[in-house]
């Protein structure tokens, strides 16, 4: 019987959103448009239009050893070209940001190839070949996994995920990489590591509270869905824990 992933338990909207983000069979809703050049500016790894710096010659130009794994696994575009490994890192507010650290990692593992994600409490980083990164970043920014006010693209100085929002609804950023303009549009004025940009990069309007509550993947009893109310989810975690405890004894299957 073929394994059919279920992408996690739960009856709440939070659980549903988690499954939707993870499931590569579901198309993520595109909420905004950001140009390729703008993505490159925010990432800050190379100047727009410049060639991709490389870590090794393109695979086609170098002798590949006779390796069965290499024959099975098709290299990504970035790997094929010999790109450097670069990163994008997100800080997600606990006040209903649409994606959250582990959720991002799970989602990326299901949807992307050739990646190395790292998950912490205040930030989540994903590393991969540069041209793959730009493609993935576009998806992470343009779709319902992103919100201009509650998600920060921050390579360093990430403090903010656990703080109250500012009066204008923006998550705190010590380096104020993104600002909410009077026109209601959020613009990045610095790249992800905090270097000022020559021109501001617009990433759209912040989503409203209702949308956020309906699209978030974090439980929150004050501003969103209470974890306690998703009984199925809690019971499932208990079940996993109980089974892991029991299987620590290496029981024999009857």
């Amino acid at each position: 019987m073929a394994y059919k992933p279920q992408y996690g338990p739960g009856t709440s909207i939070v659980a549903e959103n988690r499954r939707k983000q993870m499931n590569p069979g579901q198309k993520l809703e595109k909420v905004r448009s950001v140009t390729d050049e703008d993505i490159v500016l925010i990432l800050g790894h190379r100047a727009p239009g410049s060639a991709y710096p490389s870590a090794h010659p393109p695979l086609a130009e170098q002798q590949e050893p006779d390796c069965p794994m290499r024959k099975i696994v098709k290299p990504t575009e970035g790997a094929q070209a010999g790109d450097r490994v670069r990163y994008i890192q997100f800080a997600d507010s606990m006040f209903n940001a649409p994606s959250q650290p582990y959720q991002r990692t799970y989602t990326e593992m299901y949807r992307f190839r050739g990646i190395d994600p790292g998950t912490l409490s205040g930030r989540q980083i994903v590393e991969c070949r540069e041209r793959d990164l730009e493609k993935y970043s576009k998806e992470l920014i343009e779709t319902e996994m992103f919100d201009p006010a509650l998600v920060g693209i921050r390579g360093a100085t990430v403090h903010g995920h656990s703080l109250r929002l500012a009066e204008d609804g923006m998550m705190f950023d010590m380096l104020q990489r993104n600002v909410l303009g009077e026109d209601g549009i959020v613009k990045y004025v610095k790249n992800q590591i905090g270097e000022p940009l020559d021109r501001a990069v617009a990433v759209g309007k912040p989503m409203d509270q209702k949308w956020l509550k309906a699209h978030t993947t974090i439980y929150h009893s004050l501003v969103g869905t209470a974890y306690r109310d998703d009984t199925e989810y809690v019971e499932y975690v208990q079940r996993i824990h109980s089974l892991r405890t029991k299987y620590g004894f290496m029981p024999k299957e009857e």
């Binding site: 988690r18 959250q100 650290p101 998950t119 409490s121 205040g122």
Partner: peptide
Amino acid sequence: KDGWSRLGFFGYDLQDQCGSANSLS
């Protein structure tokens, strides 16, 4: 970890997510 989709830093991935199996058995 499941409620907030976050826990501690990287090390928690190991110590705290495999502990169920070594706390009783």
